[in-house]
Design a protein around this nucleic acid. Structure first.
Lengths: 177, 177
DNA sequence: CAGCAAAGTTAGTGACCAGTCACTAAGTAA
DNA sequence: TTACTTAGTGACTGGTCACTAACTTTGCTG
């Protein structure tokens, strides 16, 4: 048995939670499954986080944060006026390299809708704020043209959809990219 | 108590299921909730459909079918070369008029991913086939240019996302459309 | 109106699941 | 060594849920 500090454990819980929630969604993931992946007992999760929802929120926040980081890194190493291409290439890279991140995004979006429908507006607010940072980041990198930002993010969302649906890379639905 | 033919009841179950599944997703929706909305006892659902999954599949299929119908109707009443604008306007119309349909779509996409991850490939196949019909329909209406089709569907998927996230209509994330 | 099929119900079951509780073990500072 | 903190566990609980079985009601038809 490996002992870690609570902070380190929380970190591994977030990683495990992203994997599990991306696969099966909020309702479809048991805290047992997350605990098994982390390698601790299920009750111990509730020492590290107050509720299952708090685990999901932490995982969601991390996922959006890391996606923003992907864009930022891409723009950093790109020629001037090459931001669009660089970000698009970086997102494309995720399809094969980190589809988990794309599927977690989808799970976040539907989780917000469900929470909102259930009368919980706190969760939605938090996620909207995180997503807005993504939007603003992209918008800034694209010279502040909302039309371009919309077009770019739209393609990203279609990519998320096609990945979720499981269309293979050589399928004709990918031919328009 | 209103008695209906099994076929009529199945129809009302599908309508109710779309509403409930759109709100809370596959795992988050109880058959109890669907039955309550239909106005029958919960066990009776299992006379009309073999499993909960079968109800979801029927609802999903109907949702995609109806979305295709929205596009078809829009193109029908549009001037030549005006297909793109007409379909875009028709989809825009759904944001305010039938957001349920957009949210159900999102639920379908993540449900496919979950089923696939759980080893069930039948469900994914069925949905991919239905979605492909949508893609082909749009592609045909847009003159067979995959780039244009991708651009159009991409914006649709971004709309789905923004609706799920609950951004109000006057928010700047909508400014690029 | 008898009888029958189809529409519908009530009662129940086994499985699962988020969260609690009382406890043990391993470190640490004096 | 003693007093204290922190990491972690096993056993349990109240509740939910998909699905089954056995029964009742209702409209139709010869």
């Amino acid at each position: 048995m490996v002992r870690m500090s609570a902070e380190e454990r929380r970190e591994s819980v977030i990683r495990a939670a992203i994997t599990e929630f991306a696969r099966a969604g909020y309702k479809g993931t048991s805290t047992e499954a997350i605990a098994r992946r982390v390698g601790v007992s299920q009750p111990y999760l509730f020492r590290l986080f107050p509720t299952k929802e708090a685990i999901f929120l932490a995982a969601a926040h991390r996922c959006l944060e890391e996606t923003g980081e992907v864009f930022r890194k891409a723009v950093e190493g790109a020629p001037p006026r090459g931001a669009l291409q660089a970000m698009a290439a970086a997102y494309d890279h995720l399809i094969a390299e980190d589809p988990e991140k794309l599927q977690m995004q989808m799970q976040i979006y539907v989780a917000v809708a469900s929470a909102e429908a259930a009368g919980d507006h706190e969760f939605g607010s938090a996620i909207r704020a995180a997503w807005l940072e993504l939007w603003d980041g992209a918008n800034l990198a694209l010279g502040g043209d909302p039309k371009e930002t919309t077009g770019f993010l739209a393609k990203g969302m279609l990519i998320n959809t096609l990945v979720s649906l499981g269309f293979p890379p050589d399928h004709r639905v990918w031919s328009g990219f």
